[in-house]
């Protein structure tokens, strides 16, 4: 038997700082540095990124999905978020999302689909086929970003699950766990957060499921472990931290539409011609720029998606 005698300077297991707390040190340092736009963007301090988990780098291939525009710096993408389950201020998700446990994670698949059941992220997302797509992201609040996502086409997941021929829509739900999400305590919205797409929209090549950004796993505040990215629609359609995929023949209820049906339609395509009742959608502020720039129809993705809506009155179907 090997008897290990401990030196006086050796620490016992119990006195080792847990990784979580050790990593929280960064939050500490960050709060003092919560930098400004100009500086933050100019210097883009990567060492102070708002991730408390160790985010693993991902293997992926590059694609032609690249608008050729300046990418929004990592600290802005991960420090300025709307994720009301973690609070309604833009810096709340970065502060609070460490409470989310993205692994193990399970997604319930039900409705008009062949493969019903509960799936892990790896069952749905083929990690050997990950690709990077740089997409414009336009929030309904009239600000925008350019973000390099890593993930797989939504169609690749849906096809794997085998929707029945009668399924016309696919609906998604976000986790709603009071223990992990402090914002759930107040009913800003009717939790859980719900979103949905028409089947042909979901099958469109642009519709994407992201598991990472900037080459690494998704930080919690950006919707870990997996989220939708629908770049021709306002950001709130790109539902985060998905726990349910439901196939149906009736138009699903969506959270913002339930909250204010006159302000947020089911389609919510980016459209500079149709104003939000409370503000104009003609121009947007690209995070990092002082002035506003013109908003593009379908967020500039008209060549790929306009055909989905031929013959539809986009003013009525906003």
């Amino acid at each position: 038997m090997l008897i290990k005698s401990r030196e006086s300077w050796e620490e016992g297991e119990a006195s080792v700082t847990p990784e979580k707390i050790y990593l929280n040190r960064r939050r500490f340092m960050k709060s003092g540095l919560m930098g400004g736009l100009a500086a933050g963007l100019a210097m883009s301090l990567p060492a102070f990124a708002s991730d408390d988990r160790v985010l693993k780098p991902l293997n992926f291939r590059h694609t032609d999905f690249d608008p050729g525009e300046t990418m929004t710096p990592y600290n802005a993408v991960t420090g300025y978020n709307n994720y009301y389950e973690f609070g309604t201020h833009k810096d709340d998700p970065a502060k609070n999302a460490w409470q989310l446990r993205p692994a193990p994670w399970s997604v319930k698949v039900d409705g008009m689909v062949e493969k019903k059941g509960t799936f892990g992220v790896e069952d749905l997302v083929d990690y050997a086929a990950l690709e990077e797509r740089i997409y414009r992201h336009r929030c309904v609040e009239a600000w925008s970003m350019v973000i390099p996502w890593v993930g797989v086409p939504l169609a690749s997941i849906l096809k794997k699950l085998g929707p029945e021929s009668g399924a016309k829509y696919v609906a998604f739900e976000t986790l709603a766990d009071r223990k992990q999400m402090p914002g759930i305590r107040w009913p800003v919205l009717d939790w859980p957060y719900r979103e949905g797409l028409r089947m042909d929209e979901a099958m469109n090549d642009l519709a994407f499921v992201a598991v990472g950004l900037y080459g690494k796993e998704l930080p919690n505040q950006n919707g870990a472990p997996l989220r939708l990215v629908v770049p021709w629609k306002y950001g709130f359609k790109s539902i985060k931290s998905i726990v349910r995929i439901h196939f149906t023949d009736t138009k699903p209820k969506t959270s913002w539409n339930m909250s204010a049906p006159n302000e947020y339609g089911f389609y919510s395509n980016v459209n500079p011609e149709v104003d939000h009742p409370r503000w104009s959608q003609k121009r947007e502020r690209r995070i990092g720029e002082f002035g506003r720039r013109k908003t593009l129809m379908f967020n500039g993705y008209g060549d790929k998606v306009a055909s989905l809506y031929t013959g539809m009155d986009l003013r009525a179907n906003f």
Binding site: G35, G36, A38, K90, R285
Partner: peptide
Amino acid sequence: YNWWLAFQYQPNALGFNPQE
């Protein structure tokens, strides 16, 4: 003061969307 810093491209406390 923070806007003055922002216009000098200095670190400031206005965040990523200073106008908002």
